[in-house]
Write a protein that binds this DNA or RNA. Structure first.
Lengths: 222, 222
DNA sequence: TATTTCCATTACAGTTTTGTCACATTCGCC
DNA sequence: GGCGAATGTGACAAAACTGTAATGGAAATA
């Protein structure tokens, strides 16, 4: 579960945000000034910091800078119309901003979006009832983990990275075995396709995920 | 020099944006409808797409989706106050948005910000001479590929996702084998640590990547 | 329909992975 | 130093992975 740090000195807002965000499934810690914020960042190691630029104690920009130094993504909050701060904040590497007053729903969208981009969020790809967590290296089918061998997993990743596109047999051979089929036989790929299908297709006899495109290759639906 | 694709059907706006962005040092191509946009994305392979959500010909969301599929970052333009589109757009993976009317200066800030973030494109983690490409599922040591078994790879991912933190033996057992060591013996982990070290450490006898923290667990330096 | 080509399937042997054991080594502490 | 606990190492069978071959079947083409 992702941990957020709220740097904000308006206590009412902090309380509201906190309960709202925790309802959305985040863990939260808070700090009301620059000093506390910097300590929290080192101690709690949050996945993302929400920083109000207009802090009473200290400077929001300094907090942003420290967060950047620690590799923590930042979304800053700013008074609406404060164009200068927005530009300055984005230029100094902040990941996003949201102007007050904001709608909680949009804030969550932005948080998720930033977490996704910066890699703090889980990198999960879902296709029907198939889930691939590239951050854990696991694959799940209809909620149950399926165990793929190293090569089967890499083959699946190749498909996922070109979802919907036809991948030629040669292309797949190159991606998995480097050398364009110089060392492994062409049929090897066919066998791996079958093995992968046997593990991830609902009905391996009638594949709905990995389609054969005769004469051209294979395509992962998506 | 980065190449931008403008998907926008207001010709006046296109011309203004184009000359402004080119003045800022970007190359630009344009498309005024969904069909043209999709073609351009495949053909011109832009580094970023600016997509107006309210296209006359076609659907801005579809264009966003296609861009995501091709791995092209997206900033979308939206009529101000169109809250639904904003949330939907961010949720579908767009990298940022800007509401019309916007100030050109802020647009450039956001473009640079997104380009900076997405700069690499590929999900690669590097630690000294060790490289893990989670998008391909491969691991490289000093430029040479090392072949990890499925479990070794997952163990490495666990470390990478908590770089610098001490991970207890139990935590690692849980992450890899689910059940907290109920089924596999505690020593199994020790053995896997060794196997992983043998494959990724420069000098496995004196590990510099995966450190032992006696009594507490292990830590991946970072 | 006959033929060819491409793909699917099954079977199999060599190799690697996986989990455990027994034993060695190192570390912290008295 | 000596002791006990924690960690490292080498070896081992069972299981899984990997690549190939042989065979069967489906789709395009004539």
């Amino acid at each position: 579960m992702e941990k957020l740090l709220l740097v904000e000195d308006d206590l009412t807002l902090v309380r509201m945000l906190r309960s709202f965000l925790e309802g959305e499934g985040f863990r939260t810690t808070t700090a009301s000034g620059q000093t506390a914020a910097m300590e929290q960042m080192a101690a709690a190691q949050p996945d993302l910091a929400l920083v109000d630029l207009s802090l009473a104690e200290g400077n929001g920009f300094a907090v942003c800078g420290e967060a950047k130094r620690l590799g923590i993504p930042v979304i800053f909050l700013t008074a609406s119309g404060d164009e200068y701060s927005v530009v300055a904040g984005l230029d100094m590497g902040a990941d996003d901003y949201i102007a007050k007053p904001f709608r909680p729903r949009e804030l969550v969208s932005r948080i998720r979006s930033v977490l996704r981009r910066t890699g703090k969020g889980r990198r999960v790809v879902t296709l029907r009832d198939l889930t691939v967590d590239t951050e854990k290296g696991t694959v799940t089918k209809a909620g149950k983990e399926v165990f793929l061998s190293a090569l089967e997993y890499r083959l699946l990743l190749v498909f996922l990275n070109s979802r919907g596109q036809i991948l030629s047999r040669n292309r797949l051979l190159e991606e998995i075995w480097d050398s364009a089929g110089d060392f492994v036989s062409d049929n090897t790929l066919t066998v791996y396709i079958k093995r992968l299908r046997d593990k991830i297709e609902t009905d391996p006899a009638q594949p709905s995920l990995i389609k054969t495109v005769r004469g051209l290759g294979y395509r992962l639906e998506g």
